[in-house]
Computed example of a mutant assay.
Amino acid sequence: MFRIDKDGMVRSALVEARRLTALERGDMPVVNGIVVHQTGGSTAQSTFNSYRNSTIGAHFLIEKDGKIYQTASLLKRANHVGLLKSRCLERHACAPAELKRLQSTTLRKRSTMEHGKVFPDRFPSNRDSIGVELVGEYNRNPDFGKIRGADEFVYVAVTGEQNAALRWLVGELRRTLKVAAEEVYRHPQVSYKTTTEAATATW
């Protein structure tokens, strides 16, 4: 079990603090979900390096050997989700008028429409979700351009050590922050991302 201190940092021997305040985008008074990602770099250090020159990042980073780093306060938002998918479209549950509006607009405008909704009518977003990155680079997909719908890149498999750490971390976050099991997602489930990102992650 862990505790969260007054600064939103986890206190546990299993989590090393590497807080980068440049990733924090304002207060996050409530957490409704957890989004699991994979990085584009092959090491934790490459991710730390990219975070220093970016406003995009997650709250946690899990190295291939299972080591967990906390990179942002749990009391602060982080830009990790990107354009938000429509929950009713993904669940095939839109009202006819909304379905028509969603189908006749761009992905960016769809995302804006979703951000105007109150949870749980939308997926958890940057403003109310914890981001967890798993170190795991991607490779070019040899089927890209040959098979219709094939992604340009394919992510490497998550390691067993990463999955063990992820199961522990997600369990502790869910228990402490009272996040429902069904509100934990892989990044492509809630945003327009490469479908293999975190596909082999388990929690």
Rank of each mutant, 00 (worst) to 15 (best):
N53E: 14
N53V: 15
N53K: 15
N53C: 09
N53D: 12
S54Q: 05
T55S: 05
I56D: 05
I56S: 04
G57Y: 15
G57L: 15
G57D: 08
A58V: 10
A58N: 13
F60M: 14
L61P: 00
I62F: 04
E63G: 06
E63Y: 11
D65H: 11
G66M: 04
G66W: 12
K67G: 01
Y69L: 04
Y69D: 00
Q70P: 03
Q70H: 05
Q70T: 06
T71Q: 13
T71E: 07
T71S: 12
T71W: 00
A72G: 11
A72R: 08
A72T: 14
S73Y: 15
L74C: 11
L74K: 01
L74R: 01
L75W: 15
L75Q: 12
K76G: 09
R77S: 06
R77G: 07
A78N: 12
A78R: 11
N79M: 06
V81P: 00
G82C: 02
G82W: 07
L83M: 08
L83F: 09
L84I: 07
L84H: 02
L84K: 01
K85M: 11
K85G: 05
K85V: 10
K85A: 06
S86P: 03
S86K: 06
C88I: 06
C88N: 02
L89T: 10
E90C: 06
R91K: 14
H92L: 12
A93T: 14
C94T: 10
C94G: 03
A95T: 13
P96M: 11
A97S: 09
E98Y: 13
E98I: 14
E98H: 06
K100M: 05
K100F: 09
R101I: 11
L102H: 05
S104R: 10
T105C: 04
T105W: 11
T105K: 07
T106L: 01
T106H: 01
T106I: 04
T106F: 02
T106D: 00
T106R: 03
T106G: 00
L107S: 01
L107N: 03
L107T: 02
L107Q: 03
R108S: 02
K109D: 08
K109T: 14
K109I: 06
R110D: 00
R110P: 01
R110L: 07
T112Y: 00
T112W: 01
T112E: 01
M113R: 02
M113Y: 09
M113Q: 03
M113T: 07
E114K: 08
K117E: 04
V118G: 00
V118S: 06
V118A: 02
F119K: 09
F119D: 04
F119C: 06
P120M: 13
P120V: 12
D121H: 15
D121E: 13
D121G: 06
D121T: 15
R122G: 01
R122I: 09
R122H: 08
F123N: 00
F123E: 01
P124S: 14
P124V: 14
S125E: 08
N126G: 05
N126H: 11
N126A: 11
D128A: 03
S129F: 09
S129W: 02
S129C: 07
S129L: 09
I130Y: 06
G131E: 07
V132D: 00
V132W: 02
V132N: 01
E133Y: 15
E133D: 14
E133F: 15
